[in-house]
Design a protein around this nucleic acid. Structure first.
Lengths: 138, 138, 138, 138
DNA sequence: GTGGTCTAGACCACG
DNA sequence: GTGGTCTAGACCACC
């Protein structure tokens, strides 16, 4: 489990875990049917409180991303991937929307916003190929 | 003072006030030397506790956006505008950066991100001018 | 009246006025029997609220530094000079005492304190003559 | 936590707490990584309202002296010590500077100031070592 | 358990 | 009138 947790960040640890697992499923790094680490294991690996991991797992179960296999642990559900991809995209869209609403509301000119976005897009995705196949490298 | 506060939002009320005032100064709606509404006035207008407004004002004073004129109130500092414009842009940039970092980290393809951004840009800034080439630039 | 008032300082304006007048009397720049500017005059000169000047004058009258000469204004009392010199010295002493108490309490070594004091003494009084006759130049 | 708070002093309680904690970190009485007393604990110990302590802690967090460990409390940051030592010295220096500026501005002779300082130094730091040459050095 | 936010209401100093 | 400080008590999220 290659999760990067920042204990100092503003967003709660359990939410970071939830988001990272959703992302991993969306990416295909976690595949349906795959058993994920136990609460205790992951807590030890991430150096966080087991309650925190349990809360994240509970949230993911509620979202039907994980199911508990009694006696074996928790695994990714069969239709988790498409759901996670949809959730991921919707989440990102909502954040763009909120940010752009604030940018517009603060009087930042559209041209400036486009410049910022171009800069940051290059930063996040590199400026090599003009498009596509970005899934392979991430 | 045309501040829109959402008491149910996740971000604290006092932070909303801080951000909105920074934006208002950046936009030029609040000009240096101008006396801003008193703590009690704004509290009454926003239907919020005076302490909450006072906390926001204190934070803005700490950021050198406001100065207290003893016995008269608080006013916008002389060089607040440029500072607020810089702060606003940096804040927006950081949020874009975080969004795009997560988008890339979640495996969302660059092309899809560009589509989302184009949609939301149109939504936030309107499509009056046919500068639809913003996606090309990125 | 050569008073330097800093409206942004932490200490109240009326206290600044009081202190500066006490200092002026102690220095001999204001001599017993001398009429001082009226409340209105000084308020206009310093760009402060007349109430503030009135409060300072009231305080100085209470301390027997000033007396009101009905129909003429206020003047420095006959024995104000020695009283002001004593008050000035006592005030400075108390501040040294408080600062050194905090310095010692904060664990700042005596040697470091002496170094700081030497630096600041040089800054305040210059390092020309090793001692004495400093009253002439101040 | 050996903090001495004077509820009747002119300086606000929360500022006294801030200063004393900065001093304690500078002295080494509070070491990086160490969990400090909880807001409620310290409030009870000092017989102060928890909000007052929280305000002090918030200020210290803003100064990067403390960090909050969510769910556990607050602890001293790794590089707080040097920062606090610098802050302490700078604070003391500024106070000396203000004192001496006023002393000089009030016409108090340099020789008299040196005498006062020698007296108060002895008072604050004791005269165990006969380093009475501190006056000569200045 | 922890800190963070908010409300309500009081008192004070300054102008 | 203004802001600044403090108290008391409540609710919340996180761990």
């Amino acid at each position: 489990m290659l999760l990067r947790i920042d204990a100092h960040a503003a967003t709660p640890i359990f939410e970071q875990i939830v988001a990272q697992i959703v992302f991993a499923v969306a990416r295909g790094d976690l595949t349906p049917g795959e058993l994920i680490p136990s609460v205790r294991e992951l807590a030890q690996e991430l150096l966080v409180n087991p309650n925190t991991v349990a809360r994240a797992y509970g949230e993911l179960e509620r979202q039907s991303v994980l199911v508990t296999r009694r006696g074996r642990g928790m695994e990714v559900t069969l239709d988790a991937r498409r759901a996670c991809q949809r959730a991921r995209e919707e989440q990102i869209r909502q954040r763009f929307r909120a940010d752009l609403r604030d940018a517009a509301g603060s009087g930042l000119p559209a041209a400036r916003v486009r410049k910022l976005l171009a800069d940051e897009l290059r930063r996040a995705y590199g400026n090599h190929a003009p498009q596509a196949d970005s899934t392979k490298k991430t």
